[in-house]
Design a binder for these strands. Structure first.
Lengths: 360, 360
DNA sequence: TTGAAAGCGCTACCAG
DNA sequence: CTGGTAGCGCTTTCAA
């Protein structure tokens, strides 16, 4: 494509008969410029629709007003809903987002990137973003690979980084880890209250923090309820519908006996219900289900899905605010509490209401 | 946050006892450098993990290896699946993506940005992206606002731009417009074949190209089948589940009589089915449905959703390839044909197979 | 094959 | 209040 001309500050200076420095001053506001010169300059800027080159600016000011976001898969509602909120806050503060999908994990997803996460880290450094947000991916593995850890360490040495996930030893960045299992506990209590005693756990990748957290909460809650943990009632896989389908089929094929199950999220719940339906079992008539992580369409599902609202919007806002504060050198505000709630709809065969409890 | 040190080319030059120019040469490969110097430099680069500052590079080379993507809402599966494919191709070609959600339209969506699309355009120019991809938003309105048009025009004067949508008069960028209604036609033919004569059209924002295109195809197809177009069978709204719910309720409340409907996409289909179900009408027993635009989970829906696979992945690849070619000044390859297909599953009460036909 | 040096467009400092 | 100017980190002539 033919080079397209950009107007520069130098030209604006010439056209308005002032020095470059003066133009720069009116551009940046704060310092004093005589009203007439200011006016002259502003007119020329207007006329030529001039706007300063962010690259040149960034080269000097050491900030690009750009934030890097690294996550596994934006087509997953969990991540996209977070991203939207993140963008909104970022925009308010004048930041733009560089988005990278690592497609880490996502075995059930057709698309696959060849790049390692460290590749994205380096890119962030090269492009001089002001900070990086890491949501999921390898950070979420219960055992992080050494390679990855080293790459992350290098990144953290160069830039402010906030990761959503559990603290990793020896890595000096901000970790925000909202998961505490509370919500799983209240889901189980609810099922117990309805009379369920054999409750399965479906979906989620093994060795991923979020899965293990919820699984542990599941086990502990069962014990607290005086129920025994039956490993044959646990069927992990991944986070998509297809995985819910597979996981449930595994459960079925091993003749597991249960009257309710927890799904790691709405997508998985959907797939799992399908698998049940294919065996002529219906939700909620034969089996009850609660999803641990509410996506957007559960309200329109048949039956309407009882699920836990993890308030990703709040988490997103917390996370981006924290990063921006870190970038700007402000102290971070005290961590606020994110309340999750069990949203009771129809998939357990009742319709009672909503109950709240605190998390983080 | 405290300034973190970056190693520069100057330091690398000093450390390896060569000139900056030489380091630059080994960095960029092509030119000849004596083997020993090259080796020395490479070692130092390795050791300090040096990687050149993309800002400084961009300032000179006039390219940032960054592409801007402007779309309304990444949490909409239509856009996120496209984005994933776009990113993959971009990555292969060495480009990074700046993503902006304009949240244009999306009345049914909680989040709302305050910025106009022209704001994003200017940002793209400021950040010196190499090209811009515009997918949906105001460009998709059948009547584009003059303001918007002017802003787009300015953008196009500065950068290579590819938009997915119908050509806009007087705007000199590349338009790729895949929609041709073929798929709607074959969906209607299929419904006709199954015996349906009263077929409704549900969802989609009015005055948006994609809606109008499909609606026109719907009307034309009905006529070709010798059926009359009944406006009371058309209920538009927007593209989300909630909108399908609303649109279907409108249909119901006006006592429309129909035995099948076309939904603008899977989300809308979902919401519409819910509305029917709430009135004790079931899909497919009482009403058949075909979705015009397949998302990912239709396969697990109960009943499995019969829908049209628009092959967004191919479109995405076409679009990003076109943009990159434009950026690099290569001629664009001849437009290839994207085949859409009616994927017959269960929501029309039969299970026949798959039929293909061409589009674009 | 190599180094010196001239900028890319901008900010920020220094003098006046 | 204003203009001159030294860079930011890099690429790319131009001589040597």
């Amino acid at each position: 494509m033919a080079e397209k001309e950009h107007i520069t500050i130098t030209q604006i200076a010439e056209l308005s008969n002032v020095s470059i420095a003066t133009v720069s001053r009116v551009l940046n506001g704060n310092v004093s410029v005589s009203p007439d010169k200011r006016k002259r300059v502003e007119e020329v800027i207007q006329k030529y629709n001039f706007s300063p080159n962010a690259l040149a600016r960034g080269l000097i000011s050491k900030q690009t007003k750009t934030i890097g976001v690294i996550l596994p898969d934006i087509s997953n509602p969990y991540f996209s809903s977070m991203f939207l909120e993140i963008e909104r806050s970022a925009l308010e503060a004048g930041y733009t987002l560089l988005l990278c999908n690592t497609l880490f994990g996502g075995s059930s997803h057709g698309i696959r990137n060849t790049k390692e996460e460290s590749y994205y880290f380096q890119m962030m450094i090269d492009k001089q973003v002001d900070g990086v947000l890491i949501i999921g991916g390898q950070v979420d593995l219960t055992a992080v690979e050494e390679n990855y850890k080293q790459a992350l360490k290098r990144l953290v040495e160069q830039l402010p980084v906030v990761v959503i996930g559990k603290e990793i030893e020896d890595i000096d960045c901000i970790f925000i880890h909202p998961e505490n299992g509370q919500s799983v506990t209240s889901a189980l209590n609810y099922l117990y209250m309805l009379g369920h005693r054999k409750i399965a756990f479906v979906g989620g990748q093994p060795n991923v923090t979020i899965t293990e957290d919820r699984l542990n909460a599941y086990k502990k809650a069962l014990q607290n309820l005086g129920l025994t943990v039956d490993d044959s009632l646990i069927s992990l896989s991944d986070y998509y519908s297809q995985d819910g389908y597979t996981a449930m089929n595994n459960l079925i094929s091993r003749n597991a006996s249960f009257t309710a199950f927890l799904a790691i999220n709405d997508n998985v719940a959907l797939g799992a219900e399908r698998a049940l339906y294919d065996q002529s079992m219906k939700v909620p008539d034969d089996i009850a289900v609660i999803s641990c992580d509410q996506f957007l369409t559960g309200e329109y599902h048949i039956p309407r899905l009882t699920s836990i609202n993890q308030h990703h919007d709040l988490l997103a806002r917390l996370v981006i605010t924290t990063l921006i504060n870190a970038i700007q050198g402000n102290a971070n505000p005290p961590k606020f509490t994110i309340t999750t709630e069990l949203v009771i709809r129809e998939s357990c065969g009742t319709h009672l209401g909503i109950r709240n409890h605190a998390a983080i």
